[in-house]
């Protein structure tokens, strides 16, 4: 276990090495000024590194094996057959047979997004910059609802086998229309929240769900249909964050 933790730590260091070299290089050659509070910043950097290593190693031990197994079990033909009376033939192309899959997609999309460190970072910054108008939890819940809905809809798409791009294009259309009406200050933040949602915690479990579904449902090819859930999880948070801002603005107007 200690060795694995060390390996993860080493992996994190290797991952961060390019950034560190770039920053030190520019700092020394171009800016040529010492960083303020260098000691504190240095400690902070080490905290982030060690924290990420523990976080990733912990996920490897506690969440990923169970989460991935769960995704496989929920999509396995045996489990789907067990839900229905004996003797009745299970039509695996009937999308209503996958009830627990949708519930799992919703719940796991929501909960992994709440735990996503990069979203937390953006929410903290937004809270600070907006002078407290944007709540850390408000933003994260809005994003998590978007991811939950996106993953559930993405699972439905894999089961029904409809083309990915139509969903994404319609998603973008909705974003476009919302952009015309949303408060101006929220727009960049909403666009950003599409990119930060799918990261360390969400991707491995969601990928397992996509692959599990694509290998169970007849006629789907895991290689082609397993992809795409992440794209869903990146579009829908934009919609929910814009909607959250619109509803807040509308509510503020109404109660005035």
């Amino acid at each position: 276990m200690e060795q694995k933790l060390l390996e993860t730590l080493w992996g994190t260091v290797a991952d961060v090495l390019p950034i560190t070299i770039i920053i030190i290089g520019f700092q020394a050659l171009v800016i040529r000024r010492p960083i303020a509070n260098l000691e504190r910043v240095g400690f902070g950097f080490v905290y982030v590194l060690v924290g990420l290593a523990f976080f990733l190693q912990g996920l490897e031990m506690a969440l990923f094996p169970l989460g991935k197994l769960m995704a496989q079990q929920l999509t396995a033909p045996d489990f789907l057959a067990g839900l229905h009376p004996a003797g009745e033939a299970v039509n695996q192309l009937d999308w209503t047979r996958y009830g627990w899959v949708y519930v799992f997609a919703l719940a796991i999309g929501f909960s992994t997004t709440i735990a996503e460190p990069s979203l937390l970072a953006v929410a903290m910054k937004a809270h600070q910059v907006s002078g407290g108008v944007i709540g850390v939890w408000g933003l994260r819940i809005a994003v998590a609802v978007g991811v939950a809905f996106g993953i559930a809809l993405g699972s439905y798409r894999i089961i029904t086998g409809m083309p990915l791009h139509w969903y994404i294009i319609v998603g973008y259309m909705i974003v476009l229309v919302q952009t015309l009406f949303a408060p101006r200050t929220i727009i960049p933040l909403a666009y950003d929240s599409g990119g930060v949602t799918t990261s360390t915690v969400t991707v491995p479990i969601v990928a397992a769900l996509g692959l599990g579904l694509a290998s169970t449902v007849p006629g789907r090819n895991p290689v082609f249909d397993g992809f795409g859930l992440i794209a869903f999880a990146s579009v829908f948070p934009i919609i929910t964050v814009l909607a959250y801002a619109q509803i807040s603005a509308w509510w503020a107007n109404k109660t005035q």
């Binding site: 504190r40 080490v46 905290y47 982030v48 060690v50 990420l52 460190p117």
Partner: peptide, 14 residues
Amino acid sequence: IGLTLFVQGLEMGL
């Protein structure tokens, strides 16, 4: 522990 250290490090370092 990892998440706690990460959040602390964000405010102090990154």
